[in-house]
Design a protein around this nucleic acid. Structure first.
Length: 305
DNA sequence: AGCTAGTACTCAG
DNA sequence: GTACTAGCT
């Protein structure tokens, strides 16, 4: 999904690190992100329809590297995409198609390196690629979960249920979903950037400190800043949203304050309060798969009333 | 200072 | 999905 500017905004919580720091722990990994990166390495073969398993070897290298450092990986693969993402998905498809056409044209003209760049932009992870990876993981006895919808929600649910202690991802949504340890930008040697949700020291007074926010407040901040479920009020990004939540405590009170603000009140759209509530519900109650109960459940339980 | 929108990019020797 | 940045408020 993605919250604009969030990764940059939580930079003070991040540091250079290595997977060996979580030796002995279990980590949930975003398999789709791995496949997408891996596909770049064999973009030519994939675009030409030539059978290859190079991308699987790349992903398995990551799996084996984690095991080498004593980390137990669980791979999560994407299920269906949410209906609300149809527009952004079709935009991406159109871009991929045009890049593919351009790549083939450059190839006919003999511009092999130019063609490769375009063909790399045309790559997307197909269901067949995901299936092939899934089958390989099963044959190697690596736990693999297919999430009903978005992988982010599934991964954070598994951490909250105690099945894992960290997440390997490229996605900023792990922060509002409340994951306390996130490994970003992991390379084939295990180096990575590590996000930790813990109080910042005295030297970071001016930085955003997400450990100062409750779980709900973190989600409220991200909705205010603009997410897939709700566009932000014009002029409000991640920094303003953080300031508002810190000042007023929660989203509802922050919007009340904006409604009274002389310069901001005309920018708050009609019905924003209701849209905000809907977004919060969509955020919190996404469908995920529960491995113990072997059924779909809401990521956080829907209240009775 | 912070928000927006546009461009460029994810492999690996 | 990401990072970076010029230009605007």
């Amino acid at each position: 999904m993605g919250i604009k500017g969030l990764r940059q905004a939580v930079a003070a919580h991040m540091r250079e690190g290595h997977v060996k720091e979580i030796a002995g722990k279990t980590v949930v990994c975003d398999g789709h992100a791995w496949l997408h990166k891996a596909a770049f390495g064999c973009a030519f073969d994939i675009a030409m329809g030539k059978p290859t398993d190079k991308y699987i070897e790349y992903c398995m290298h990551l799996v084996n590297m984690l095991k080498f450092y004593g980390v137990t990986p669980i791979i999560v693969l994407d299920g269906r995409s949410l209906p609300g993402k149809a527009r952004v998905n079709s935009e991406r498809n159109a871009r991929r198609e045009s890049q593919r056409a351009l790549g083939m044209e450059l190839l006919r003209r003999g511009d092999r390196s130019g063609a490769l760049k375009c063909l790399q932009q045309s790559i997307h992870v197909t269901a067949e690629m995901a299936h092939a990876f899934h089958a390989r993981l099963q044959s190697e006895k690596v736990t693999c979960i297919v999430s009903p919808y978005e992988a982010d929600a599934q991964m954070s649910y598994m951490v909250r249920k105690g099945m894992a202690q960290a997440v390997i991802s490229e996605d900023s949504d792990m922060v509002p979903f409340g994951v306390d340890m996130i490994l970003y930008k992991m390379d084939t040697s295990g180096s990575c950037c590590i996000f930790e949700n813990k109080p910042l020291g005295e030297g970071n007074k001016k930085s955003m400190d997400v450990s100062k926010l409750s779980g709900d407040a973190r989600i409220h901040m991200c909705i205010l800043a603009g997410c897939d479920y709700l566009q932000s009020i014009p002029g409000i990004g991640i920094q303003k949203a953080y300031g508002l939540i810190r000042e007023h405590g929660d989203g509802k009170k922050a919007i009340e304050a904006l409604r009274k603000h002389p310069k901001m009140k005309e920018k708050v759209p009609d019905g924003y309060e209701d849209a905000f509530e809907r977004a919060e519900k969509l955020f919190k109650h996404q469908w995920v798969y529960d491995m113990e109960e072997r059924k779909l459940v809401n990521m956080t339980q829907v209240p009775e009333d």
